[in-house]
Design a protein around this nucleic acid. Structure first.
Length: 439
DNA sequence: GCGATCAGCT
DNA sequence: CACAGCTGATCGC
């Protein structure tokens, strides 16, 4: 972030200290078990989970940032060459377990790197985070905010996670005879699963590595790897598709629930009515947010639950801030400058375009900045499906996709590289059989 | 033979 | 539009 001094979620050479906001893969590109470019600072919980993702990492490089307190680092000024002090505070980002924002003070001024964050208006936890941040910046202007701009567009509106979690419960309750699969990642959405588990008084199935993570996080009673104990299973998001659901439904009635701030559109088979309805929905959103921002729904009704497919529901459970939440955050921090840290979109718009008028220096809104992503292939028309999986052959299909839940981790016919990766994964599990020992 | 990186896909 | 991440192929050591 500051050249020659500190890096946040970037792992190339040239900094004196490195910071990791959270353990999602898009923030650890370049990190590996053999990485050794300098001390690595992260939250206590991230440190606890770290060894699971990077088994042979030199743990003596890891420095823990306790949340809410200033840490002083003595570094060498890249400009003058003399000693310079950098202060840093980690603040709960409410994104996934261990995720923090980082507030820096030093010769470069005052910088706030949000990492990925959710800024909900309500909940005790949200209020604590808000108070902590306000307290930390009350005496000093923030010069630059590096902002999680994932949903930095007025069309992104969704309710609190509390409300979305109840929507998921409602869907499950309304399908008493169905199995349920929920798409999740290697980290995140634990509160959603805990809510389901507690309200419905059932365990949630997770895959073996995910159970280890749950144990590291201190959840020992709500999860299981035994499919016979529950009808609700959390499965890797990458294995969640219409094909998966159709395959499962040849065996048992099953619905899929995709919790996401993004409308879950991809991987649907061609269905003109469906795409028409999706198109209508997007147009409606755009129109309703043209000029006047539509507020998130306070009533908590299933307004944004979408039935996308015979077996699939999309629920607006997001670990990133909605547009209105980002706006609220910028209003509170009032930085002099604002930079987006997520630029993967094909149509990236500088957050300053929306929030320039809220920033400290009251600069004019900047012009739209489009960043075009090069793609090797042209865009595939909506509804055009790939044929490589041969969706007509259900027997073959079941081997390949349908029974991911059961066979995915039991080996089978895999390449050497994959087998090795799985063995390494297995080794990790063994190492972590006593979660209390880590860190 | 291994890790790092990339393309492709979910 | 593209949240985060797996997989297989290839490349360089």
């Amino acid at each position: 972030m500051e050249k020659g001094l500190i890096s946040v979620d970037r792992w190339t050479e040239g900094s004196q200290v490195y910071f990791l906001t959270h353990l999602h893969s898009d923030h650890t590109h370049g990190l590996s078990s053999s990485w050794a470019k300098g001390p690595l600072f992260c939250s206590r919980l991230t440190a606890k989970l770290f060894g699971f993702k990077f088994p042979d990492f030199n743990l003596s490089l890891i420095r823990i940032l306790d949340i809410g307190s200033w840490h002083s680092l003595s570094l060498v000024s890249p400009s003058i060459g003399s000693q310079t002090t950098v202060q840093v505070m980690a603040i709960d980002a409410h994104h996934c377990p261990g995720a923090v924002m980082l507030l820096f003070r030093g010769e470069f001024g005052c910088l706030l790197y949000t990492g990925d964050f959710r800024w909900e208006a309500t909940s005790e936890r949200a209020n604590r985070g808000r108070d902590m941040l306000c307290n930390a910046i009350k005496d000093e202007a923030v010069d630059i905010v590096y902002l999680d701009n994932t949903y930095c567009n007025p069309s992104y509106t969704f309710p609190t996670r509390q409300i979305a979690a109840q929507q998921v419960v409602d869907i499950i309750v309304s399908h008493p005879e169905h199995d349920v699969i929920i798409g999740i990642d290697t980290l995140g959405k634990e509160d959603l699963l805990l809510h389901i588990s507690r309200v419905l008084q059932i365990k949630i199935w997770v895959w073996p590595e995910r159970l280890q993570t749950m144990h590291l996080l201190g959840f020992h009673d709500n999860f299981t790897t035994n499919t016979s104990l529950t009808r609700v299973r959390a499965v890797p998001r990458y294995s969640f598709s219409t094909e998966t659901l159709e395959g499962l439904n040849t065996m048992r009635p099953t619905i899929g629930i995709m919790p996401s701030g993004l409308p879950w559109v991809k991987h649907l088979q061609r269905d003109d009515n469906l795409f028409d309805s999706l198109l209508t929905r997007y147009n409606r959103r755009k129109m309703s947010t043209n000029g006047e921002v539509r507020t998130d729904q306070p009533d908590g009704k299933s307004r944004y639950v979408e039935k996308l497919h015979e077996y699939i529901y999309s629920v607006p459970y997001s670990d990133h801030s909605s547009f209105l939440e980002i706006e609220d955050f910028v209003k509170i921090v009032q930085p002099t400058n604002l930079k987006g840290i997520v630029s993967a979109s094909t149509c990236y718009i500088e957050p300053m375009y929306y929030f320039g008028c809220l920033c400290g220096a009251n600069q004019p809104a900047q012009r739209l900045h489009y960043k075009h992503k090069r793609k090797g292939r042209g865009r595939v028309a909506a509804g055009q499906t790939k044929s490589s999986f041969g969706s007509g052959n259900s027997a073959k299909y079941e081997r390949k996709r349908g029974s991911i839940v059961k066979i995915k981790f039991l080996g089978g016919h895999v390449s050497r590289v994959t087998a090795l990766r799985r063995m390494q994964h297995g080794a990790k599990i063994l190492e972590n059989e006593s979660p209390e020992n880590s860190c």
